[in-house]
């Protein structure tokens, strides 16, 4: 059991909290830099990346978040969380935190009418909601799962990013492997 923080500025953070609680983790909703203290891992939920980024900047949380990732503790970014963690975001310019050396295209699979459910090449149940598309993967990045050959689950060091929503399809394996 770990103490896991879920960034709770905006978006689908409740679903993440529920999954983590079911796995018996102690969960903390993070809305400020101070709330990061004493946490073993952190989840960046889905939502609107532009909104989340502004709230992080206005709350002066960016340097604390960089510090958290640099400390080597596990981090999961889903959908908007992947966009925030990416090196480059298209269409640009959109600021991001550069924790995973990938390029993502926002709404790369289309608008809401193109949101979909599917099964990944690795057999995962995937839920894509106005999802980002990973269009470039840097040399230090592991691709852990794909959809029709395209990366949808990536890892660099202790930071894992998903283009889909494991918290909405009860895909607890990702949480189980990352937070112990």
């Amino acid at each position: 059991m770990a103490r896991v923080g879920v960034l709770a500025l905006q978006g689908a953070f409740e679903a993440q909290v529920e999954v983590l609680r079911r796995l018996n983790h102690d969960v903390v909703e993070v809305r400020s830099a101070e709330a990061l203290e004493g946490i073993d891992g952190l989840v960046f939920p889905g939502g609107e990346s532009t909104t989340q980024l502004k709230l992080m900047a206005w709350g002066e949380m960016l340097s604390a978040l960089h510090g958290f990732v640099a400390s080597g503790r596990p981090v999961l970014g889903t959908c908007a969380g992947l966009i925030l963690a990416a090196r480059e975001v298209l269409p640009g310019p959109q600021e991001s935190l550069d924790w995973i050396d990938v390029t993502v295209q926002r709404n790369g699979y289309g608008r809401q009418l193109d949101s979909f459910e599917a099964r990944s090449d690795g057999g995962r149940t995937l839920m894509f909601i106005r999802a980002p598309r990973i269009t470039r993967v840097g040399p230090g990045v592991e691709v852990l799962d794909t959809l029709d050959g395209e990366p949808v689950l990536v890892r660099q060091g202790k930071v894992v990013g998903t283009a889909f929503h494991p918290e909405l399809s009860d895909d607890v394996d990702i949480f189980r492997e990352l937070f112990v």
Partner: peptide, 17 residues
């Protein structure tokens, strides 16, 4: 595409916004 789950999924993404 456009399952009820993906529809509710977008509503989930808008929470707190």
């Amino acid at each position: 595409k456009s399952t009820f789950k993906t529809k509710v999924g977008l509503a989930e993404m808008l929470k707190g916004g």
